[in-house]
Structure formats: C-alpha cells, structure tokens
Amino acid sequence: MNDSLAIVAQGLTKSYGSVRALRGVHLEVKHGEIFGFLGPNGAGKTTTIRCMLDLIRPDGGTLRVLGLDPQAQALAVRARTGYLPGELRTYDDLTVEQALRHLNALRGNKADWSSVQALTRRLDLDVRPHIKYLSKGNKQKVGVAQALMHRPDLLLLDEPTAGLDPLVQREVLRLIAEAKSHGATVFFSSHVLSEVQEIAERVAIIRSGVVVEVAETSSLINRAMRRVSVRFEQPVEVTALAGIPGVKVLRQDEARSALLQVEGRMDGLIKALAAFPVSDFETERPSLEEVFLAYYQGERTEAK
C-alpha cells in the first residue's frame, strides 16, 4: 500500500438487496489533498463515505483509510477522522454547547474548548440555543464545527456547505483550506460544483456506483468541450470550419459571427481561422458543472 495515499479503494462493491449502490469503486486520494467527489443523488457518494467509517460493510473490494482497514481498525480510523454527514441529526433537546461537548467527550475531550469556541465564532454560531430551534444552516454549522474541532488528519465531508448562506460558505471553504494547510486530507462530496472547482485539487465523478473519471480539476475542465465565439470583419462562409475534427458550428449570425463548440485541442480551429478576417475571438471555458452534466448526458444517451 502506497504511504502517500490517504484513501485507497479497489473494486469496492455494495448492494442493498437488489440495488447495487457501489459497483466496483476505484479511488486513490493523496495525503494532504482536497479531493472532490461528485455525483448526483443515489450515485454512491454517501455509501462510499459510510464504508470508510465502517458504518456499513462493503460486499467486496478493499478499502484503506489512512493506511488502516476501516473494519479491522475502525476506532483508529475514526479517531483521526472528522465526519460531516449529509444531514446532521443529533439530540434536539441539547443546546449547541451540550451537543459539541458530548461529541468532544466521545473523543476523550481531544479538542480544547477555547479552540471550539473560536471555531463557533468564526462560523457565527451561537452555542446557547437548543438544536431543535436551529435553522438548517445553523445545524450545518454545528456539523462543520464538530467535524473540524479536533483537528483531524482526514475530513470526510458530505455536502459541507449545504444550507449555508454565501458568507458562511466562504468561511467553511476557508476552514477546509486551512485544514489542508495544516496537513489534513479533505474528501468531500458536493453538488455545488463551483465550490469543488474552487478548492478541490482533484475530483472524481461517480455514476451509478462506478467512478467514471478521476482527474485534476483544471485538467478535467481543459479537456472538456469549450465554446468559441468568433467575429469577422466581413461576411464569411463558416461551413468549412465545421469540417475540422472536434469542431461544431452552434450558431452563425449574418455570416459575421459564429458560435462554435470545440472538443479537444484548439490547434486545428486556430489554423483554419487564420484564413478568415477575424476581428474578435473569445473562448469560454466550461464550468465543472458543464463537464459533470456532459458525463450524465453521456449516460442517458448510452441508456437510450
């Protein structure tokens, strides 16, 4: 097992009755990186995370978390891990402070209470109210605080910014970045692709229980289709451009401008455009969201 890897999953499978939640997940997450785990509901994100904490047992495959077997060494894994579930559920009749103190006590009071207070202040979280009176966003802050408060080596975060207002979202992303700067590995699932794009160094895309892509976030975006808008000084016939491999004409306005879709390298298009009187040229990088959707559109096409 490679020591530089914080999480290694090989051929991980898990079924719930006839539903195959994981169908051979392969993953490698390096120590100290922020790793985004993307996929729609039911793709297997939460199942994968729950296997890492030995909350559920995979049917097959191997899994190592921080070099440990989560089933055989569950306590050692959990002692070094901070977990934020997709939806925080705890005792509603406790105050925020009581809940955090209880969870801290389950870790042998590893977190110094003054640092917990500092964390709750950064999250703008009042520790006095009872959990049952908290909004969804404030409950999420409790979840973030309890996951981070003991400064874990590994953070497993299931939708960390769900329900938070934009200001607190920024603060949570800063906290995640700080955890990484202190050496922590961050594995987080999200639907908010812009934030994954912003902080994750690498992403995996999971589809129907299979990881279909693992790549550096930037390379995934660069590799994908991009849109090119070209304006010409005089009317031109752009049909020739459509013959370039990977290029598709999406729209042409009065023969003076064209919107193109380019898949892969730009080289062929740029060389072809050299023959035209180009007055303006703009490329638009796809967002991670578009990349992500492309994978799922591909799935639907395959299904048909």
């Binding site: 909350l55 891990t81 579930p85 005792y91």
Partner: peptide, 14 residues
C-alpha cells in the same frame, strides 16, 4: 431510526 447513530459511530466509539 432518528439518524443519530451515524454521527455517534463516526467517533472513536466501538
């Protein structure tokens, strides 16, 4: 049933 066990067992508690 209330979904609280996940959080408890995510701590170092066997």
């Amino acid at each position: 049933e209330n979904g609280r066990l996940d959080l408890i067992l995510a701590h170092p508690v066997s």
